[in-house]
Amino acid sequence: MGDFVEKLKKLWTEVEAEVPNHPSIETGDVIGEHYAISKPDKKTVNNPTKVNNKGNITEKERNKRRKSEKEKALGVKKKQKKICGFCGVKTNFHTKTTCPDNPNARKKPRPTVS
């Protein structure tokens, strides 16, 4: 057993002689050697200052284009106006049940968009 240990020690010294510099174990150094680049001293790229997220995407909306608030408002403006059953005014902002003139209105009218 002693001879085997001595042979292992001798083999170890030979390997150390052939490979004098041990490779670095740090991840950054390994990646740098693989891509042949080094980590820069100063950070040159910054994070964006403003991110414009419109919200979450559901499965149904994945193939559809999401509209901005401006497009939604223009769509309401293009809608055909209907006559209120209580006051007779053509509008898209209230109905008979939400008419501001109706004292028995069940709901409050939507705010008007100008």
Rank of each mutant, 00 (worst) to 15 (best):
56 N>R: 12
32 G>K: 00
52 N>D: 06
38 S>T: 13
28 G>K: 12
49 T>H: 05
37 I>L: 12
56 N>Y: 05
28 G>W: 03
55 G>M: 02
26 E>R: 02
53 N>H: 07
51 V>N: 02
29 D>N: 09
35 Y>K: 13
54 K>P: 00
44 T>K: 10
33 E>Q: 06
41 D>A: 07
21 N>S: 11
39 K>N: 06
46 N>A: 05
47 N>H: 14
26 E>L: 04
51 V>Y: 13
56 N>T: 11
34 H>E: 08
31 I>L: 12
19 V>L: 02
45 V>Q: 13
27 T>E: 04
22 H>F: 05
44 T>P: 03
40 P>A: 12
31 I>R: 08
47 N>E: 08
31 I>Q: 04
34 H>A: 10
53 N>V: 11
37 I>W: 04
31 I>P: 00
56 N>I: 08
43 K>E: 15
44 T>C: 04
23 P>G: 02
25 I>K: 07
42 K>H: 15
40 P>G: 13
21 N>G: 04
46 N>V: 05
31 I>K: 07
38 S>Q: 15
47 N>K: 13
41 D>N: 08
37 I>F: 12
20 P>H: 00
24 S>L: 09
52 N>Q: 03
27 T>M: 06
47 N>T: 06
49 T>A: 07
54 K>S: 08
30 V>Y: 07
29 D>C: 06
43 K>H: 10
30 V>H: 06
54 K>A: 07
22 H>V: 04
34 H>T: 11
52 N>T: 09
35 Y>D: 15
17 A>W: 09
31 I>N: 03
19 V>F: 06
47 N>Y: 08
52 N>V: 05
29 D>F: 08
45 V>R: 14
41 D>P: 05
55 G>Y: 01
49 T>E: 11
39 K>L: 06
26 E>C: 04
19 V>E: 09
20 P>S: 00
39 K>A: 10
36 A>S: 13
28 G>Q: 14
53 N>D: 07
32 G>C: 09
23 P>L: 04
40 P>W: 13
56 N>E: 09
26 E>T: 05
38 S>A: 15
27 T>C: 03
34 H>G: 02
46 N>H: 13
17 A>K: 07
23 P>E: 10
